[in-house]
Amino acid sequence: MDAFQNKQVSQSQKLMVFVLTMSLYGLATLFTELIPKFQVGIVEFSVEYFLFIPLVLAMLFDPLSAALGAATGELVFSEIMLGQFGGLGELEKFLTVTIGVYIAGRLVRDPRNTKMVGVAAFVGTGAQLLMGTIVDICKVQFAVEDFEAVAGLPESVYATEGFAFLNDLIFSGILFCVLPTLFLVPRLYGKIEPLLGMNPRTKETSLGLFSAKTAAGCAVAFLCAVCAEMLASSGFELIDWEASWAESGTAMAVGMIVAAVVALAVLMVMRGKAQTAKVK
C-alpha cells in the first residue's frame, strides 16, 4: 500500500512539473516567436532566449518531466497555436531541447552548489546548441541539390553555422541561460518545492550520477532527431518520385484527373441524396 501510494504521489508530482514547465516555457516561446529574429551582419541570434526556464525547473524538480514539459510547451504554444508547425522537423527541436534540459537537470545534484548549477546550465545549453548546429548543417547539405557544386555555398554554410554556434554559446548561452539560471535557482530553492508539496532536492535525494545508460539514451534520441530532420527536409532518395512521373507523366496525370472527376461527381450525387433524405 505504501509503496503504491508513494508511486502515485510521485506520478502526480511529475505531472505537476510537466504542467508547470509546459505552461511557462510555452508562454515564453510564444514571445520568442514574436521577437523579430535579431540580425547583426551575417549572424542571426536565434538562440532559445528562454531556455533558462526549463533549466531552472529541471534542476529543482524531476529533470525528465521538466524536459518533456518544455519541449511540449514549445510545440504546443509556439508551433501549433501560431500555425508555425514545421512538420517532422519539429521532432528535431523537440528532442534536442529535451536532451539539453535533461542533461542539465541530471548534472545538478545539489541546487545550492552554485558552481554546479552554472556548469550544468552551460553544458545543457551547449549540448542543445551543438545538436542544433549539426542538424542545421546536414539539413542545408541535403536540401539544396548539388550542395558541393554551388560556388561558395558549403563554405558559407560551415562558416555561418560554426560562427553562430560559438556566438550563441558565448553570448546568448551565458547571457540568457547561465546568468538567469544562477539568479533564479538559489532564489527559488526551498520556496517553490513546498508549493507543489515536495521536498527540496538534496545530494541524498538526487537521481545519482549520470550513467552510461542515460548517455546512450540521449545519443539514441539525438540520432532520431537527425533522422527526423533529414526525412523532413532531404531529397528522400528512396522514392524516385520525379523520374517515374516524367516518363509517363501526361498519361498518369490525365488518369488521375479522370479518377478525381469521377470521384467528385459520385460524392456530389451521394451528398445531394443524403441531404434530401435529411430534409424528408
Binding site: 502526480s12 504542467v19 508547470l20 515564453a28 526556464i53 546568468l179 538567469p180 517553490i192 508549493l195 507543489l196
Partner: peptide, 23 residues
C-alpha cells in the same frame, strides 16, 4: 528574466490545483 521569478512561483500554485483536480 526577473519577472519569471514571481511567475514561476504563482504558476506552481496553479499547477498544483490543476493536477489535483485532474487526478
Amino acid at each position: 528574466v526577473h519577472s519569471f521569478y514571481p511567475l514561476m512561483l504563482n504558476t506552481a500554485k496553479r499547477s498544483r490545483t490543476t493536477v489535483e483536480a485532474l487526478e
